[in-house]
């Protein structure tokens, strides 16, 4: 395989090594295994539990969500660290890529914990629908996140593809202020070739990769919307954000 050349003269052996490393990193750093998610898939929050979430004060539910997001982000940081080549980037670029991409990866990973058959997502141990997040007061964001998860699920990605797509989203030259964009670009290109290779193997649909890549602008729009909603919330509840939100969440998202 090492003598067989793939795109851009990268050997097929190297593409395979990159793919295997990223898939392993993904599987080691997912909060739930595929089997665990399958077992939980039909365990939904009861009517009373949903009512309880709905009747929470707005700031309490925001805090709960911030805690869950922060927890998920810690796993994404660990995923990034295990990707060969990531820790070889300069520290500035490691931080920049994570700061700008971690929430996007959390949203990609969320499709694993989304049941498209009843439009529910895993939250605090059980599945629940959009109405569970009503008290957040940002229906547009919640509904956009659910729409995104449903649309990503419709592509029926394998764990391998989710892993490589997550890495491609994270290691992106589109982020401003990179100090070594060439180095990031080289890594990104290899990840894309590996993703392309796997998708061609797994999908009959020739446009599957194009369809997947076309979801990236939505991811970025969701993160912008999240920042805007956070700013609006912070204006109304500055104390909640300053005192009760996880420090990592504030470090990543505070204006």
């Amino acid at each position: 395989q090492d003598s067989q050349l793939g795109p851009n003269n990268v050997s097929m052996g190297e593409l395979d090594r990159i793919a295997q490393n990223i898939i392993k990193s993904h599987l080691e750093t997912c909060q739930y295994t595929t089997e665990e998610l399958q077992q939980l898939a039909w365990q939904t929050h009861s009517y009373e539990e949903v009512k309880m979430y709905q009747s929470k004060p707005r700031d309490a539910l925001w805090q709960q969500c911030a805690i869950q997001i922060t927890h998920a982000i810690q796993y994404v940081v660990e995923f990034a660290k295990r990707i060969s080549g990531f820790m070889e980037l300069c520290q500035n670029d490691q931080i920049l890529l994570l700061k700008s991409g971690c929430l996007e990866v959390v949203l990609v990973r969320m499709c694993r914990a989304f049941n498209p058959l009843n439009n529910t997502v895993l939250f605090e141990g059980k599945y629940g629908g959009m109405q569970m997040f009503k008290a957040l007061g940002c229906d547009d964001l919640v509904s956009a996140v659910f729409d995104f998860a449903k649309s990503l699920c419709s592509l029926q990605l394998t764990e391998e593809e989710i892993a490589l797509f997550s890495a491609a989203v994270l290691i992106s030259t589109d982020r401003p202020w990179l100090m070594e964009p060439r180095k990031v670009q080289k890594l990104q290109e290899k990840i894309y070739f590996a993703l392309q290779h796997i998708m061609q193997k797994n999908h009959m649909d020739e446009d599957a990769l194009a369809k997947l890549i076309s979801r990236i602008p939505t991811l970025s729009a969701l993160c912008t919307l999240h920042t805007e909603e956070l700013q609006a919330f912070q204006q109304l509840h500055p104390e909640t954000v300053n005192v009760l939100f996880p420090p990592l969440y504030k470090e990543l998202f505070n204006p």
Partner: peptide, 20 residues
Amino acid sequence: KEKHKILHQLLQNSTSPVDL
């Protein structure tokens, strides 16, 4: 570095899946 103290720390820490 100061601005991203926690992220910086997380990047420096050596962790295993068990720690997660």
